[in-house]
Design a protein around this nucleic acid. Structure first.
Length: 193
DNA sequence: CAAGAGATCATCT
DNA sequence: GATGATCTCTTGA
């Protein structure tokens, strides 16, 4: 069952937690890739110094101020794309970063794109995931309730969730320690335990 | 194995 | 002109 927009309109932490165990589906001319989400992070509102939108409404962050259920894809460190899903209401900037998935389908295609045969190294990190799923700027702003990129509820039982501070946001003052990273306990496809 | 450097560019100052 | 929601490779113990 494809996940509907109302799901993404919940509070960002709720969305981030509930996304664990859901399937990420990416349709591409070269083939379809599917992965099970095993790790997410929440970026919440104008006060959150780790959230790009905390420095104001700019052309880049405009997406996060928009309607929930859209993709916020951006380029960082001159090398990597990051995939986020906008959450909550219009004019409140928040999003969930998809940090890692467990490859389920289209694995040969992922191996080819990533240049590795090691399954655990295909999508165990936000940059790797985007490369394996061919996610780039052209998907920025696209509707995650559409046909090209969407999420699916596989009807799996709720996984065991582990909570930690977010990764790579040391500059975010008191916000860096907030427990906004979520991962499936014991899963070996996360970016780091 | 752990730690560190380098790669490279869109975005904001 | 600085810097970052990262990855990979190299180095050295």
């Amino acid at each position: 069952m494809k996940i509907l927009r109302s799901f993404y309109e919940q509070s960002t932490v709720d969305v981030a937690r509930q996304l664990l165990g859901k399937y990420l589906v990416r349709k591409h001319p070269a083939g379809t890739t599917i992965g099970r989400i095993v790790e997410t992070e929440a970026y919440i509102g104008p006060q959150d110094k780790a959230c790009h939108a905390s420095r104001g409404r700019t052309p880049r962050t405009e997406i996060m101020f928009g309607l929930a259920g859209h993709a916020y894809v951006y380029f960082i460190y001159g090398f990597h794309y990051m995939l986020n899903i906008v959450t909550e209401g219009k004019d409140f900037p928040a999003a969930v970063l998809i940090r890692a998935v467990e490859p389920l389908s289209g694995i040969a295609l992922m191996k080819k794109r990533r240049g590795t045969e090691e399954p655990r190294n295909l999508a165990s990190g936000p940059g790797k995931l985007c490369e394996a799923f061919a996610i780039d700027r052209t998907l920025n702003g696209s509707d995650i309730c559409g046909k090209v990129l969407y999420l699916q509820d596989a009807g799996e039982p709720a996984p065991k969730i582990i909570t930690t501070p977010r990764i790579g946001v040391d500059y975010a003052a008191e916000w860096k320690n907030k427990p906004f990273r979520f991962l499936i306990g014991g899963n070996t496809f996360v970016s780091k335990p």
